[in-house]
Structures are given as C-alpha cells and as structure tokens.
Design a protein around this nucleic acid. Sequence first.
DNA 1: AATACATAGTCTATATCTTGAAAAAAGTCA
DNA 2: TGACTTTTTTCAAGATATAGACTATGTATT
Lengths: 398, 398
Amino acid sequence: MVRPERRTVRDLRRGNRAVLLRALYFAGPTSRHELTALTGLSAATVSNVTGDLLADNIIIEAGLVDSDGGRPRVLLRVNPTYGFAVGVDVGETHVRVELFDLDMNELAKSEFALRPGAHEVDVVVRHILTGIEAVVADSGVPPSKVLGIGVGVPGIVERGPEAMIHAQTFGWDSVPLGTLLRAGTPFPLHIDNGAKTMGQAEMWFGAGRGSRHAVIALIGSGVGASIIADGVTYRGANSSAGEWGHTKIAIGGRGCRCGGRGCLEAYIGAEAVLERAGIDFNTSTEQAAFADLVASGSPVIEETVEYLGAGLANLINLFNPERIVVGGWAGLLLGQHLLTTIKQKAAENCLTQPYSTASIVLGRLGPDAVALGAATLVVDEFLLSTTSASVSREPAVS
Amino acid sequence: MVRPERRTVRDLRRGNRAVLLRALYFAGPTSRHELTALTGLSAATVSNVTGDLLADNIIIEAGLVDSDGGRPRVLLRVNPTYGFAVGVDVGETHVRVELFDLDMNELAKSEFALRPGAHEVDVVVRHILTGIEAVVADSGVPPSKVLGIGVGVPGIVERGPEAMIHAQTFGWDSVPLGTLLRAGTPFPLHIDNGAKTMGQAEMWFGAGRGSRHAVIALIGSGVGASIIADGVTYRGANSSAGEWGHTKIAIGGRGCRCGGRGCLEAYIGAEAVLERAGIDFNTSTEQAAFADLVASGSPVIEETVEYLGAGLANLINLFNPERIVVGGWAGLLLGQHLLTTIKQKAAENCLTQPYSTASIVLGRLGPDAVALGAATLVVDEFLLSTTSASVSREPAVS
DNA sequence: AATACATAGTCTATATCTTGAAAAAAGTCA
DNA sequence: TGACTTTTTTCAAGATATAGACTATGTATT
C-alpha cells in the first residue's frame, strides 16, 4: 500500500539524472536549453546533471546549432558506444542473437535453426550461449562494455533470478532459464516473454511511438499480446499478463494447442486457420500457405477476421488503449489485405466510446523485432540506473 | 515517455509526508518507531514529518503502549475528524448519499428512489445536490471541513472537469455531470464509474485488502469490473478500462442491452439470466426472483456459471491478478451457492500457471460499497496532497 | 531510594540537492 | 568595435534527510 520512492536528497539527483538521460535518449540530439523544457528541470540543474553525464562519458556533444543571433546551442546525445546490448529471440523455428549499440544499430548477428517441434532445453541454451559469444567476438566489442543480455522466449516467464518458464506449446514446463544461462555467461540477464519484448520494440521504435496506453497484438502461429499501461509493460502479479491468445471467445468451441476449447488462438492463430481451411502444411511452408489463403479471400479468412475483430474489441473494452498495433507475421498479412474489415468488425463488437478513441494500426518492425525488443530491456535498465558508475567520482579540482 | 516526478527538495518532503500519512492511515494507530520500518524513512525524518502533521492537526496522539522496559511508545493516528468525505451512489433504482469521517464511519445518510427506467439527468442531479446538503446539515459537520464529494455512476466517465458520462443502459449519452454538479455545490468533486468505486472500497476495506493486483467483478443487473494494477485503479487512456460486461464471449450470440451480440453481460447479468430462464419480473422483484432461480439449481444457472467461469478465466489470463473478488448482488448470490463450481469452470478455461496464483473470493462489503468507495476517492486525494494546508506555517518559536 | 539499563523520540551538524539570479560565454548585427 | 541576443555556467540561498549524539521516560536491580 505504501510506495516509498525517493527519500533522500541523493535519490533526487538519481531520479533527475534518469529523467534527463531518458529524455535525451528518446529526443535524440538536443541542447541543454531544450532539455529544460523536456524534463521540467531548471537550467542550472540541467547544466549540473549533463556535466556529470559528460564526465562519465555517458553522453557526448554532437555539434552546434545556430540560434537567432545568440550563442549557438551545443547538442547533446547519448554516447552510442558507451555500452552495448545483446538481444536474443527464441522462436519456434530459430534462435536469433543480435548485438546492438545504444542507438540500436545492429553490429553483429548469429542465428541457429531449430528443427520443427524440437525445442530441447539444452540445445536452446547452448545456441543462446554460443550466439552471445559469437556476436561479442564478431563485433569486437570488449566484454566489459556489454551492458547485458535480453532474451525473449515463448510462454510465461516468472520474474526473479530463476526466470522460470512455462510454455505449453513450446514443450517447456518449469524451465529455470535464468539459472541455466547464468551458469554460462557473466553478463546481466533480462528474460521476458517474446510478445512483450516485441511490444516494447514497437513502442520505442515502431508503430507504438508516442502513445502511453497501447496493446500490441502478436499473431503468428500462436497468438499473444503485450499491454502497455501508462508507458510501461503491464505484467500483473506473476508476469503472465497479456495471454490474449487463450482467452475464450466461444464456450465449448474449437480445441486449442493449449488443451483448452474455444480459445481465440484456435480461431485466429495461423496454424489453426490453416487447419480450419483444411490445408496441409509444415513449419517451412506455413507462412506461404497462409499468405495464399489470405489472398484467396476464402470464407475461412472472413471468419478469421470476424474473430480477430471481436478479439481486438475485447482488448479495447478491457484496456481502453489509445492504440492497437497488429503485429506478428500472420497479423501483418491479414492487416495488409483486410485492415478496413478488421476495424469494422472491431467496431461492431466494441462499445462506441472506447472504440472511437482507439486507433488500430499495423506493426512497423520486421522479423527482428523480438530480438530488438529484448535488447531494449537492457537499455531500459541502463537508462534507469546509471548511478553506480558515478559512485567513485573525485572532488572537482578548483 | 519522460515522467518527472520529484524534482526539488520540497517535493521530497511532500512525497515523504504523503507516504507517511498513507502508512498511518492504513496501519492504524502506530508509533513513530514502527513508522520508520513501514515507510523506510529514518527516525529523524519520521520525527520531523509527524511533528508537522501534528501541528497541522492532521494526525493526533492515540495513547501509549508499553515497550519492554523502556520509554513507552506514543501511538499516532490520522485525526478522524480533521475532515469529512461525502460518497454518492447513483444506481439504477436509487441515489444514495452518505457522509463519512476519515475513519469511514457513516455519520449521515440520505436516499432517494428512482422510478424504474426513469433516470432523467435533472432529477438525478437534484437528488445528489439535495442529498449533499442534507447529510452535511444532518451530521452537523461544518462545510469548511468537507474535503470533497465522490460520486459513483454507471457507464463510462471521462476524466476532466466536465466528467462527461456515457451510459447506454442508463439512458445517458454525453452528460457533463461534473459541470452540472459544480454549478450547485462548492465542494471539490471526484466522479468515477460505480464499479471502480466499489472496487476501491473492496481494496481498502474488503476482500481485496493486501493485494496489489486484483480484479473486482461487479455482477448485478449489469456487469462491470474494476481492475487494480499495482495498487492503483487502472483507467486506460480515457478512463473507460474494465468494460468486462461487454466483452464478447460468443460470436453472434445473444443480444445485449448495449445493442451488441454475444456480450458476457447477456449471459451472466441478472436481467439477462432471468430473461433466459423465461421468468417475468420487474425492478422491484428482480433480486428475489434471481435468488429463487439460483436456489432452484436450474440448468440456466448451470449455463450461467459456465459463462461466468470463462469470463473470470479471461480476466485471469489477461490481467494475471493475485485475487479476483466477485461482488455485486447477483455475483454474491451466485458465489454463495456455487463458488466451488465457479472456480472449477474458471480453472477449465484458464491457463494453469496464472490460475494457480489467483484466488477467487467473494466480496465482503454490503450494498453501500459504491458510496463508500466514492468517498474513498476523496480520502485518496487527501492522503496524496495535504501540503496545501501547511503552506502558511509560521516559524517555530524557540 | 539510588542506580543501571532499555527503549522511544528529538536535536544538531553535515552533506546534498534544486533553484533564481547574476555572470560568463559565444555568437550576430550595425 | 560595441550593442545586443541567446545559451550555459556559477554562486548564494533555502530546504531536506540522515547519522549519531542526546534527552526523555519507563522498568529492573541493588
């Protein structure tokens, strides 16, 4: 009930430092003057804090800009090579590892194919660990500058050092991925559900930018969602919030991969849609088969859009977002052909007021969004707490 | 993206003051010593801040307690008569106005019946305003000590001074209740959806106590929900979040009062259940008829429980709460007879992991919960910002 | 009764912090 | 060169939390 946040005068500086750094990160090259407006801090404080950050080499100067007949403004920006973040995407068909600088430029990449249906824990762990070593070596980044590793995985990820994972459709039941990975890598770890990391990527760099309340719907073979409440990924009590795919849209309806009946995923997940249409496929032909089906205008697709619209309407009614981002490869295929119809079906199934204030848009990031989003977990942590670095500052020489 | 919270040293004090006051409010009579543990503040700061609060008469001493052979502890508590809050419940059949002290003792009450289906705006507004005057007069509380008025109403309440209300089932479409009430009363106003105010009452004083992530389901003639995320009522972008009753549980299913089809409310709302069972009733006999039906073990009730279980499962999958509180008169009737079955149906329709960490319990507050919760809106605001009162403090005499 | 001990609460000195105002820096313009 | 403009830094003032010393107020023991 009580939430003690900032207590001492020093926490004040820590907080203001974080606020300023975050503003600088998202606003790009910016002058101290503009930062006063962006952060609400006084010019004096901005000067103090930026001074600290410059001394720590966390931010750097980035050129000058003329002012109308006065002293030119010095632009500041986050030092993109102050540190680096690794993002890992554990998917149904692959393990993908990428290394980014703080500007989220991809500096190295390593990918491993998974045999369909074969997601043995030790294989995946080995791929992740060798991938990390590979991208660090390939990029030439000194290990001391790697801020951490972000990992996006299917299923429910419990918070805590163990990072216990429950992923029925993936064949993982109570896998302590955090413990397993920590044994093989010295870097700080951040593990989260893949739909949530993709959601954060869309919020930071994609279709979600600028909104504080959003839902990112991830529709692929399976179905997930990431809920952004007041700018922050909503996790719930045990970090399993957002399991949209297994909400019931029909009592006693179609069977689902999760073992239940009537799940939304059983109607709009690509795998289920292809099954409903009676189309044979395997993992490698799934996307092409689905694309053909969508283009064909089959009645199965009509029905799928009806269910998708209702599913989105439920999200709008429950979460009242400003924006819904439809993502995932299947979601993008459906959206590219049928966004108008999807919106119409959503409107039919939604209360007027919340529907009218929500916009439904398509995701803008490609297939690397999960890994990118995983890396943003590391950056997010970095932006929050860069204070440890400045602990051993020496008194200024006068 | 940037959330500047505390900036200056003064904000620090304001924040710590609020933290301490809130701790004191919810922990009840407590010594300064215990408050250091509860708030994380140092003994010196607790002493300072409590000194301020005592001087402002916001808190008072409440007796002594022996310590094991040392100086006895002085117990402190919030001064229950420092201020008073009015709660208003606008329901389908009545307008209820109650006045509470800060301990939430009811000091006065005023109630007006509404003719079934007759919710003319001006009538309701007049009832509210005369009710406020009546409870203030009856209680003998000086108007200067009334901290504000909380109002719980059906439908969607937009934030902002107008407090525009959209309540299709109530016959209100874009009613600026805030503007209308402000013209007739000088007190600060807080207007919110009734399901949300009831939810806050259950969180503060009822079955929700102690949980940070919870959903309070309100099942009466209609169906609503209040979502508590991280201890705070989740409102979404435009404060309409939590419209659980109109989420779709069946594509193209039964017609609903909202004009849509397949809404959950059309299956578990008391009005809809009675209709499905083919029972004639009017507003005054509804509750009795529903109670009889529940007791009869009719197949309609079996079906209702099935839908209710699925609806709760959807909430658990999406929000991952620690606790679900089933409230509202119809919800309580169903729960009292059939809680085990409801839980079982929820389990069948929910992912294992989130279900296993969520407990489903019955609401513990009576019919006054909406008004009580509305009054807590006022108290909540009071606990956050009592600083204005202490602006004109004089320097202490030495 | 005097003394020792224990616990609660307050006071003081100190190190920080943010800020407004003044000063300095770094340009343009005439 | 000097007036002017705009950005950034410096400085003094005011406010805060904290550690640790100190005071207050009991019980237990001698």
